[in-house]
């Protein structure tokens, strides 16, 4: 049933693209609302039919996975939720994948945020991933929620030398000295790996400048696609690898799944986003091509 549906939808989309091409060549203006509607339906169709692809991880993503994989049990992993709902579809899957991977490797998790909206998303991770999939882990011994602090890079500048000064207590107002996870942690430099996840300011770049470089802590940022190219110059010395956009997240989810079959059935939102993503990319690429064909034909006419 759905097979026929897919073909009909694809036929409609590509038929539509050809129509737009013909229209444009004739020199008629296509209203932008038609273009909008086009993108809407192409994406919605792909979501509706839930098309999924296999992903093979690139080296830059594999590096991150391998590093976390090779750390000895009980290593300290800090994840910073530096994003808001607007960036959520891209980077939230990364945060959850890192949390799953860390907990399955029995690492200790420290969760914090430099964005006010990040703390609410952290709560979602704790409620939906940690408490559901890892009922055995104990708050304070296996993971801790430090929550949000205002002050952007000012926060980082303090925690790189002294955690307690910035976080006298966790998000539940519990004194940090009574939390076992902090017995041998003085500063962020004591972490074994840090995952700054985000794409704005403050974000991964500030983490590299204020924590990664001064503290020589391995950094593996999870990035919104918009900023991913900007972080490449820090690879491979200042960051050990990076995840760029939903594609990076999908690659991580796929290695995680193939290495740990227990995650076969947990949701992998990034992987399931790649179907619609692909179709939308094709539509946009077609628009660029159509636009340029028209452009060159017009120019030729003008020159002739």
């Amino acid at each position: 049933m759905s097979g026929i549906g897919v073909y009909i939808s694809l036929f409609l989309i590509f038929g539509g693209l050809v129509t737009i091409l013909v229209y444009s060549i004739k020199g008629r203006d296509v209203d932008r609302r038609i273009i909008f509607a086009f993108v809407f339906f192409a994406t919605a169709t792909a979501i509706y039919y839930n098309i999924e692809f296999k992903e093979t991880p690139t080296t830059i993503v594999k590096n991150v996975f391998d590093r976390l994989e090779s750390l000895p049990e009980g290593s300290k992993v800090l994840i910073s939720f530096d994003f808001d709902p607007a960036m959520k579809p891209e980077v939230f899957p990364m945060a959850n994948a890192f949390v799953r991977h860390s907990l399955v490797k029995k690492h200790k998790l420290y969760l914090m945020s430099l964005w006010p909206q990040g703390q609410a998303l952290m709560t979602e991770t704790i409620e939906d991933v940690i408490k559901v999939e890892f009922p055995e882990v104990v708050y304070g011994e296996d993971y801790v929620m430090l929550g949000y602090k205002a002050g952007n890079e000012g926060v980082l500048n303090v925690i790189i030398t002294n955690f307690r000064k910035m976080y006298p207590s966790d998000a539940h107002n519990t004194n940090i000295d009574s939390i076992p996870l902090f017995d041998d942690v003085k500063s962020a430099a004591d972490m074994d790996i840090i995952f700054p996840i985000g794409g704005g300011k403050p974000g991964p770049k500030e983490w590299i400048l204020f924590v990664g470089d001064p503290g020589q802590v391995p950094m593996a940022p999870g990035l919104a696609a918009v900023v991913a190219p900007l972080i490449y110059p820090y690879y491979p010395r200042q960051v050990i690898g990076l995840l760029g956009g939903v594609k990076g997240a999908a690659e991580y989810e796929s290695v995680l799944r193939s290495k740990y079959p227990r995650f076969q059935d947990v949701p992998a939102p990034a992987l399931s986003m790649m179907g619609p993503q692909t179709l939308a990319h094709i539509v946009i690429l077609s628009f660029i091509v159509i636009g340029n064909i028209t452009f060159f034909m017009k120019r030729k006419k003008a020159n002739a």
């Binding site: 579809p89 619609p276 993503q277 946009i284």
Partner: peptide
């Protein structure tokens, strides 16, 4: 990458 990111947000919504 920007195009990719914007599309992801739309897919999310």
């Amino acid at each position: 990458y920007t195009v990719m990111g914007r599309i992801s947000l739309l897919v999310g919504r």
